[in-house]
Amino acid sequence: MIASPYASALDRIPVREHRIDVDGTSTAWWEYGDAGAPVLVLVHGFRGDHHGLEPIVAQLPGYRIVSPDLPGFGASAVFADRAHDIDGYARWLAAFVEAVGLDGDYDLLGHSFGSIVASAAVAGGLAPRRLVLVNPIGAPALEGPRGVMTRLAVVYYRASAALPERAGFALLRNGAIVRVMSVTMAKTRDRELRRWIHDQHDRYFSDFGDRDQLVEAFRASVSHNVGEYAADIAVPTLLVAAERDDVTPLEAQRRLVTRFPDATLEVIPEVGHLIHYETPGDAAGRIARFLEAGERA
């Protein structure tokens, strides 16, 4: 295990682990910060879990941060009664917020795949005070600057689905393939930070429920984007985009922000789809200013 460069900051923030039944799904979630502080709910990305957003958590003292593992990822169970698609995850997110008892007095943040889930939930009636989308999936994945890589990923997941379950599961957890993905997305030139990013992906990127659940979630991740829901999102929204994102190019993010009734775009330079790992301090500063401006309004 490689030590996190953000460990000392995170260690200063109290954390409590919980488990709750959410609409029939056993859900693990973590609570950071003081119980009486303003609440920010986090929704992590595809194949990740709550650990991935901890570097941003570490830079946001003064908040009560509620961070669940999405069903089928990390320590949360798979869905027993629905597909692992955007509608299923959006329905679960609304039920999670209700089960935790937040009563509308919270802000919501989604990263990557979580940006689609959070946007779909808000467009469907979930009512946070404000919405933050980090590395939002702002255009169809096959149209991004790495469209060829996305097509290869489609082939990879189709192959895993066609194999016998044990063989398909092993293919999905193949360490060499995970490393290729990690190397492709990391943009930092800091060798130690790159080593830590690769270690994070090695540790958490294969912690999913089962083969079928992961394949369903992947199909959802490449079949939908935030733009489908933007016009129906009435709450103030912040998009935190990356200058070198391989999934959604910056030009698409600039088009995306115009589709919201009330949204602003912040661009972090010299970073790609791993804002939460490479520039969490910069992201957290922009997020905090947006949330605090809303508190003063």
Rank of each mutant, 00 (worst) to 15 (best):
L126K: 08
L126S: 08
L126N: 09
L126A: 11
L126Y: 09
A127R: 15
P128S: 07
P128L: 06
P128I: 06
P128G: 05
R129F: 01
R129H: 09
R130A: 09
R130I: 01
R130Y: 02
L131A: 08
L131S: 10
L131P: 07
L131E: 05
V132P: 07
V132H: 09
V132M: 08
V132T: 11
V132I: 14
L133S: 01
L133W: 04
L133H: 01
L133P: 01
L133Q: 05
V134E: 02
N135K: 00
N135Q: 05
N135P: 00
N135R: 00
P136S: 06
P136R: 05
P136G: 06
P136E: 07
P136D: 07
I137F: 02
I137C: 11
I137V: 15
I137D: 03
G138H: 04
G138M: 04
G138F: 04
G138D: 03
G138L: 04
A139E: 12
A139K: 07
A141C: 03
A141V: 02
A141K: 04
A141P: 01
A141M: 13
L142H: 10
G144F: 04
G144S: 05
P145H: 03
P145I: 03
P145C: 05
R146S: 13
R146F: 12
R146T: 10
R146H: 13
G147L: 03
G147R: 04
G147T: 05
G147Q: 03
V148C: 00
V148R: 12
V148Y: 07
V148A: 15
M149N: 13
M149A: 15
M149I: 09
M149Y: 14
M149R: 13
M149E: 15
M149S: 15
M149F: 14
T150V: 15
T150C: 07
T150E: 12
T150N: 12
T150R: 13
R151L: 13
R151C: 02
R151H: 11
L152H: 09
L152K: 10
L152P: 00
A153K: 10
A153G: 10
A153P: 00
A153S: 14
A153D: 11
A153Q: 12
V154T: 07
V155N: 03
V155K: 04
V155C: 01
Y156F: 15
Y156T: 05
Y156P: 00
Y156A: 05
Y156E: 13
Y156R: 15
Y156H: 14
Y156G: 05
Y156L: 06
Y157F: 15
Y157A: 09
R158N: 13
R158Y: 02
R158S: 10
R158M: 05
R158G: 11
R158K: 11
S160A: 15
S160P: 00
A161D: 15
A161F: 07
A161W: 09
A161K: 12
A161T: 03
A162N: 05
A162P: 01
A162E: 10
A162L: 15
